[in-house]
Design a protein around this nucleic acid. Structure first.
Length: 201
DNA sequence: GTGCGGATGAACT
DNA sequence: GTTCATCCGCACT
């Protein structure tokens, strides 16, 4: 297995990239503890033209500035004051594309994830949903703006590729505020996988 | 400096 | 289906 190269993240078609991330392995090493899982659900956020994106209209703030960096960095932010959401920054410098990781299937360090989630047995909700998987992987603001080829958070290619008929595209979750962009089918998930988040149609 | 509300999840009724 | 935990980013004064 090998880490995805920078060239992977440079893709300017953020939807294509969101699909390609399905089946890849997301790892973190926090306090020396290795955890990881296979990405089974993503959402594409198409930068300045996307009303659901934090960078819509070119908004550039302390929080959103990392999205304007070169693809291959992390973008982690706090949502509802409680949940840290993990995104992959993509495209080239100046183009604030990002892909939200919404679900992973546990692969490595399951005991550590159970402890972090206060769970005794493995159930889908350990990593189904963006807030849940961040907690299981130990992701918080400290992992914002990290190099995805570093040794704190990274993504590996295990060679697995899904067929088109194994992938479902649907509307993104929790973006009602995005008006006419709320219904765009930019959420992608692996059909039938138990670690896809709740609104699973 | 102030006020509003969110790319959610879990525990309720 | 409804409620609420719990913070800070962001727009505006």
């Amino acid at each position: 297995m090998s880490k995805l190269p920078y060239s992977f993240y440079q893709n300017t078609d953020v939807n294509d990239l969101a699909v390609q991330l399905l089946g890849k392995l997301l790892f973190t090493r926090v306090n020396g503890e290795l955890t990881g899982g296979m990405i089974v659900e993503t959402e594409a956020y198409n930068g300045v033209d996307d009303k659901a994106s934090h960078a819509y209209g070119g908004r550039f703030t302390d929080r959103t500035k990392v999205m304007y960096e070169e693809g291959g960095l992390s973008y982690v932010y706090l949502c509802y004051g409680i949940h840290h959401l993990f995104n992959v920054v993509t495209a080239s410098k100046g183009t604030p594309h990002a892909v939200l990781i919404r679900g992973i299937e546990p692969f490595e360090g399951i005991d550590v994830m159970l402890r972090r989630r206060n769970m005794v047995s493995l159930k889908p909700n350990i990593t189904a949903g963006p807030g849940a998987l961040s907690k299981a992987l130990g992701i918080d603001k400290c992992l914002n703006a990290k190099d995805l080829l570093g040794d704190e958070v990274w993504i590996e290619d295990n060679g697995l590729v899904f067929n088109e008929d194994q992938i479902v595209a649907s509307a993104r979750v929790g973006v009602d505020y995005a008006e006419d962009h709320a219904l765009l089918p930019w959420r992608y998930y692996v059909k039938g996988n138990k670690f896809v988040s709740k609104p699973n149609k």
